[in-house]
Each structure stands twice: as structure tokens, then as C-alpha cells.
């Protein structure tokens, strides 16, 4: 598995500087524009805190989810088809499960780095109360991303062309991004829609990140969020072990 990870790290050596810049610039611009700019229009407080305080951890979870789609979706399909990175590795002693595991490790690393950069920017805005909170939030955001990346990768390896992924992105990811409590509290949604949103993984990630960042996390809901997200990771890993084998050792 580490042999497969080595490949991705080697490739990353060429691009890591650029990705770090993006990982910092993105939240910086978003928090300035939407949090501080648009947020100034929001009178009073949301759930008892300023809009920026409310919005930032939600966006962190949503950003992790989007990164997960790029790394666990587009990159996986490309590695399986266009770039043929997986089939090339599958001709060597590596087993499909190791090829999957190595890539997933790399995705985890990327998610954690992006989340760390984001939390660093949050700290600049005075939105992080201490190093313990920072670590917990980075961990929560990474788990949120992985909860999508693992099952998505298990499917993406079977996808023949990129347009299929684009469709899922447009009709699956965008609604989740908009309605999972990133920009406003899900309490504002009508009951049935709220119920649907609260079954979706991103809401669990948003709520986990937000309550941890605001110091309002309660044990029960947090364990539920953690269990749900971790369950998705496990399901994705188990499914991926099967789909990678089917696709690479046909």
C-alpha cells in the first residue's frame, strides 16, 4: 500500500506548492467575501454567533467535501482510464486493494492538508479558540471528506468517462453544498426537506465541524456524526476493495 502511496507523493512533489497556495487563498477569499462582506448584511446573530463564526466551519466541511469529489472522483476515473495509472500498477506485484489503499491514503493526506490550511485562515480571522480545537476541527473536516472520497472512489474506478462524474457533481454535489447548512441553519428549512438534508453526509460533517469550532459540541450528536461518517468510510473501503479488483484484474 505504501508503494502505491509513494507514486502519488512523487507526483505531488511537482504540484504541492501550487495546491498549498490554493488551499490558503480559497478560504481566505471566501471568508472575506461571504463571511465578512455578505455577512455584514446579516443583522444580529445566527444561532447566537456572528455570521462569519457560523459560516466558516460550515464552509470548511463543504470545501472538504468538494476536494473529496475532485480527488476521489475525477482523479480516480482518470487514473483508471485516461492516464492508466492503475492498470500500469496492476501489472506489477501490487494487488488492486493496495493500489486503492495507497491512493486513499494520499487523498486523506491531501484532505488533511487542505483542512489545516483552512483552519489556519480561520485562526487569522480569530475564529479558532485554541490548538486543541484546531486539531479537532481539522480531523472532523478530513473525516467528512473521506466519508465521500472512499465510496466515491469505489464507484469512480468503474466509470468509463468523465461526463458521468460531471452529472453527479451538478445534480448531487451542488444541492448538498447549498442545503446542508453551510450558508444557513437547516432549522430554517421546511420539515420534510430538513429531514432529507439531515440524512445526507455533508450535514453531519457541517454540524460536527461547526459545533467543535464553536465549542457547542455535545457528546451524543457528535458520536452520531462520527459514527455515520466513519461508517461511510468503512463502507467505501469495503466496496472499493471489490470494485478495484473487478476493474483492474478482469
Amino acid at each position: 500500500m505504501f508503494r502505491a502511496l509513494h507514486y502519488w507523493l512523487y507526483r505531488y512533489r511537482r504540484t504541492w506548492r501550487g495546491t498549498i497556495v490554493i488551499s490558503v487563498a480559497n478560504p481566505l477569499l471566501f471568508l472575506l467575501a461571504i463571511g465578512a462582506g455578505l455577512g455584514a448584511l446579516v443583522r444580529g446573530s445566527v444561532d447566537g454567533v456572528s455570521y462569519l463564526e457560523f459560516f466558516a466551519p460550515g464552509l470548511l466541511a463543504a470545501a472538504a467535501f468538494q476536494n473529496a469529489f475532485v480527488d476521489g472522483g475525477f482523479a480516480v476515473t482518470s487514473a483508471s482510464r485516461r492516464e492508466r495509472i492503475y492498470p500500469t500498477a496492476a501489472a506489477t506485484p501490487l494487488e488492486p486493494g493496495e493500489i486503492f489503499g495507497g491512493h486513499l491514503l494520499f487523498i486523506t493526506l491531501r484532505l488533511a492538508l487542505s483542512a489545516a490550511a483552512f483552519v489556519l485562515v480561520m485562526a487569522l480571522f480569530g475564529l479558532v479558540s485554541g490548538p486543541g480545537v484546531a486539531v479537532a476541527v481539522v480531523g472532523a473536516a478530513t473525516l467528512t471528506g473521506l466519508a465521500l472520497a472512499a465510496p466515491l472512489a469505489a464507484w469512480a474506478v468503474t466509470v468509463r468517462d468523465i461526463p458521468q462524474l460531471n452529472t453527479v457533481f451538478r445534480f448531487g454535489m451542488m444541492p448538498l453544498y447549498l442545503f446542508s447548512g453551510t450558508f444557513f441553519s437547516v432549522a430554517q428549512l421546511p420539515g420534510p426537506i430538513r429531514a432529507v438534508v439531515q440524512v445526507m453526509p455533508l450535514w453531519h460533517g457541517v454540524d460536527l465541524c461547526r459545533t467543535l469550532a464553536l465549542g457547542t459540541a455535545a457528546l451524543g450528536p457528535s458520536l452520531l456524526h462520527l459514527g455515520y461518517l466513519a461508517g461511510l468510510v468503512v463502507a467505501g473501503v469495503l466496496a472499493g476493495r471489490v470494485t478495484f479488483r473487478r476493474c483492474l484484474h478482469t
Binding site: R3, H6, Y7, Y10, R11, R14, P93, L94
Partner: peptide, 16 residues
């Protein structure tokens, strides 16, 4: 995206 030599290096690592 990798150089000629790097292509050999990463592949060799697959074999441990």
C-alpha cells in the same frame, strides 16, 4: 508529467 528517469524510479518502487 514526470521525467524519463522518474518514470523508471516510481515503477521500480512498485516492485519493492
Amino acid at each position: 508529467h514526470l521525467t524519463v528517469r522518474e518514470n523508471l524510479l516510481v515503477y521500480g518502487r512498485y516492485f519493492g
